[in-house]
Each structure stands twice: as structure tokens, then as C-alpha cells.
Design a binder for these strands. Sequence first.
DNA 1: TATTGTTATACTCTATAACTATA
DNA 2: TATAGTTATAGAGTATAACAATA
Lengths: 151, 151
Amino acid sequence: MKTQKSTRATMDDVLGYQLVQASIATNKAFHSEVGKPFDLRPVEFTLLQLVRETPDISPTRLAKILSVTTPGITAWIDKLSSRALLIRSKSKADGRAQHLKLTTKGSRLVDEALQKLLVSDAQLMSHLTAGEQLMLLELLGKFSGARQSKL
Amino acid sequence: MKTQKSTRATMDDVLGYQLVQASIATNKAFHSEVGKPFDLRPVEFTLLQLVRETPDISPTRLAKILSVTTPGITAWIDKLSSRALLIRSKSKADGRAQHLKLTTKGSRLVDEALQKLLVSDAQLMSHLTAGEQLMLLELLGKFSGARQSKL
DNA sequence: TATTGTTATACTCTATAACTATA
DNA sequence: TATAGTTATAGAGTATAACAATA
């Protein structure tokens, strides 16, 4: 444990740096456990899982949550759609908007991937106590909560 | 606070997702407070600060810490070097290796940027208690500690 | 006028392979 | 043989602008 007191600040004191360092670990694990075997990018997996959690969600809303541009979200949805993992349908209420839904194939795939990922997370965090693991997720969630509520 | 119990897992339970969401916030803040005004990418800022913390560090070691390829680190160092923010010098002990040092200009710039960043972090985390802020950084550090020690 | 979504395009960043020079 | 660093190059990803269709 580092007690910083009056010493000069280092990168360890910078939140963004700690997030990047932590992400390096999770990204590598994602790639070997999910990315490679399921042929999914992190964004693709997240997109699928979010559609699963929120059926009929629109591309625009996904773009905001994922902090991706609208051309970006179109491209990702194109890719996933061409793999028959999700389906676009026109909104009846608003002719401009679309609703997204997972196919059975997409649903199965993201479900398997999610399980792999949870196991992987447990391994990555195994040097933290159970309480610390929960606390870490809680605090990250609370930190991002402010942003989420503005979407 | 979410108590998950036996409900199905969501993205909120995935560490990598929480890290990405948190990073979206810090990245935006970095860009407006440091990236734009100082014309620095996150990697560039981190690279400079790490050289500052560890004078004579080698490009290879930086590449490992930042999880960047060696061609990648060469390119970043080239850029920063051409802006006269750091200097390469050949190692006397090992003819292949290099030592990196910040110039006065580089040192001043990264110092100013770091201060801006710490203020920005405080604002971003202002909806967490002081204890939670410390805890978040502590836990992220502990999580990444295992990886760091393997470098 | 504002919003949803698409297309086109340029740019940044990354990743791989092949090379040099030192050890 | 292995390591430090560079060069060249292809590919993935992102961002901007311009557009069509609907509200």
C-alpha cells in the first residue's frame, strides 16, 4: 500500500493511468478467452450483450453508451448483422429509427462468451479478497454512474 | 448499490466493461484539459512522465509498461524527440541500448500537464467520498500490481 | 429545423515481418 | 543465438463531412 503524503505525484496517482494499466490485463484476457475463440472485438461483445440486456435498443443509443460515432456503430452493426448475430428492424413509431434484436445464434454466443469472461475476471482478480473484488466493481460503477445518467 | 444475488449477470458485472466506461470519462477529461492544450496523446503524456519518474529508462522497458510494440515506442519517441521534449542517448554499458531523458522543456510541460490532470481527476471523482477516491486508486493499483511485477 | 442512420474518405494507430548492430 | 532498436508496410479503427429520410 502506498502512502503518498507530501511526495511528488506519480502516474500511480493518475486515475486514467491506473485504468489503462488495469485494462491491459483485462484486454489480454478478453482476447485469449473470448476475442480469439469467438472472433469478437470488445466493442462487438459489449454491443451484443447490451442488445441482449435491452431488446429493441436503437443504434444511436448504443453509440452513446459505447462512446462510438454513428458511422462507427453502423459499421459494427453491419458486421454483426452479416454474421447473423443480430437483426435490424424499422421502428413503427418512428420511421427513422431502428430496433435491434439478437438472433438465437447471437444470444447463445454472447451467453457463452459472458460466462468465459466472468471466469476470466475471477482469475484476474484472484489476488484481491472477495470484498475487494466487489468493492472495485462497486466503485467503478459509482464513478461511471454520473456519466451514465447523462445519456 | 446493486446487490446481484441470483439475477443474471450483466455488463455491469464485467470488469473490463467498467474499466472502459470509466476510461471514457477520463479520456474525455484528458483530451480537454491536457491533450488539446498541450498537444499530447495519453501515451505521450504517460511516456514523458515515466521517463521523468525513471531517468535513463530504456525504450524497450517503456514499451513493456505501456503495452506498446517496439515499432510503436520508436515512433512515439521520435515524435517527442522531434519536439525536443526528450533526448535519446546511447548506453555506454550496452551498445544496443538507449537511455531516455527529459529536456527542461519536456520536464516543464509534463509537470504542468500532471497538475492539470490531478485537478481534473478530483473533479471527475467529486461524487465519491475522499475515502472512496483513495480506495478506488488503491484497488486499481493492487489489481495491476500482479502484472507490473512481471515486467 | 432537428434527428436517425448511411456513405465516403482521410487519418491515426497498431501489428507483423524483415533488417542492423551489438551482446 | 538472443536482445535493442529501426524501417517498411498493411490493416484495423476512428473521426469528419455530406447526404437521405423522417420528424
